[in-house]
Amino acid sequence: MRFDFTDLKLFCDVVDAGSITHGAERSALALAAASTRIRGMEDSLGTRLLVRSRQGVTPTPAGLMLLKHARTILAQSARMRDDLGAYAGGLTGEVRLLANTNASTEFLPEALARFLADNPKVRVDLEERLSDEIVGLIAEGVGDIGIVAGTVDVGGLETFPFRSDRFVVVAQKGHPLAAHAGVAFAEVLAFDLVGLERTSALQRFLADKAARLGSGLNLRVQLRSFDAVCRLVEAGVGVGVVPQSTAARVAHITPLCVIELEDDWAVRDLTLCVRRFADLRPYAQDLVRSLRA
C-alpha cells in the first residue's frame, strides 16, 4: 500500500465535493488522472473506497477510515511545512477559510486584502460553501475558519460576530415588483430570475427555499457575480436576489429598484466559527482577529 500526498489530497477533495469530477478540479488534476489514482488506491487496498452513483460518490466504511487518516496526515504535513517555512524563507502558514456566498463576495475581498498585505508569508485558501456544510467541515477539522449565517446551529464550535446584512430583491424600474416596499420570496418566484451559477452556495440555498414552497427558480441566466446579476436586471432580463450591501454599492451606477425580502431568513447576521480558537496556529488566530476588526 503506497499512497502519496497527491492521492490523499485528491481523495479528501473527492469526498468533500461528492464527485470525482469536482474533486479532480479542486486538486488541479485531469479527470482521467484522478480516476486512475482513485482506482489505484482501491486496487492497492483490495477494497472499494467510494460508492458511485448518478448523484455522485459517497465513501464506503473503508473510505471513511481512509478519509480520517488522510486528513490527519495532510494536517500534520501542513504544520510541518508551516514550521519549516520560516527557515526556508517561504510561506510561514496557510489558512483554509470556508465562507458562504454573501461573505465571500461582499465582505471578504477588502478584509482579506488588508490581512494579506500585512502578512505577506501567509496564504489563505478560500472556498465557498453552504453554511450548514461549513459547520460540519470546521467540526471535522477540514477547514480552519468558517463564516456562516447566524441562523445556523454551530453546535460546539466557538463563534465570533462578523458582519450583518440582508437579502433584497432588485428589479428594473417599471417592473411589477418595483411598486412594492417589501415582498415575500414566494411572490418573487412568479417572475423570471437572474441568478448566480448553480455551484454557488447562495443559489443552492435559494433553490432549496423555492423547493420548500413547492416551486422552482425560473432562471433566465446564471452569472458569476452579484454585480453582473444587477447589470442584467437593469437590462430587463429578470429580477435578482442580492445582498443589500451589493444593491447599495451599485446604486450610483445602476438605477435599480430595491425591494426588501420579508422572509425571516433574509436577515443575515454572519458569524465566524472555529473548532477552538486556542488551538489555531498563530497566523490563523491573527486572521480571526483581523476579520473581527
Results as ranks from 00 to 15, higher is better:
G18W: 10
L50P: 04
M65R: 15
G56L: 03
I20A: 03
E42M: 12
K68T: 04
K68V: 01
K68S: 10
A86R: 13
L74N: 00
R71H: 13
T47N: 01
E25R: 14
T58Q: 08
C12Q: 14
L29P: 06
G56V: 07
R48I: 03
L10F: 08
I20W: 00
S53I: 07
E25Y: 10
A28H: 14
L74S: 01
V14W: 02
Q76H: 13
S44F: 02
D43A: 14
L64K: 15
R52L: 11
D82R: 09
E25I: 15
T36Y: 07
A88T: 02
E42P: 06
R39G: 00
G46C: 09
A88E: 11
R81T: 13
R48S: 11
H22Y: 10
R79F: 04
H69F: 05
A75N: 07
L10C: 05
P61D: 08
I73C: 01
D16T: 13
I38N: 03
K68W: 02
V57I: 11
T58S: 06
V51E: 09
R81F: 05
G56D: 13
M41E: 04
H69I: 05
A88D: 02
G90N: 04
G85C: 01
L31C: 01
A86V: 14
Y87L: 13
A30R: 12
D83G: 00
S35Y: 04
A34I: 12
G89E: 06
M65Q: 14
T21C: 00
L50D: 05
H22M: 12
V14E: 02
R26T: 12
F11T: 15
I38T: 08
G56I: 14
R81Q: 11
M80H: 07
G46M: 13
G56C: 07
V57Q: 01
L29I: 13
S19G: 10
L84W: 01
A17G: 04
R39N: 07
A78S: 15
G18F: 09
F11V: 14
G56R: 03
L91N: 11
T47F: 01
L45S: 04
A24D: 09
P59Y: 10
A33N: 14
L10G: 05
G40M: 10
R48K: 15
A78P: 00
T72G: 01
S27Y: 10
R79P: 00
V51W: 00
L74W: 03
F11A: 09
G89T: 08
P59M: 13
L45M: 14
M80S: 06
R37Y: 05
A28R: 15
P59N: 11
S77Y: 05
G89N: 09
G23F: 10
M80V: 09
I73V: 15
R71L: 07
Y87E: 05
L49S: 07
E25H: 14
T36K: 15
E25W: 12
C12L: 15
M80G: 00
L50K: 09
I20H: 01
K68N: 05
G85K: 01
T21I: 11
A17P: 02
A34W: 09
D7P: 05
S35P: 04
R26K: 15
G90F: 11
A88W: 05
G46K: 07
G90H: 02
L45E: 04
L50T: 12
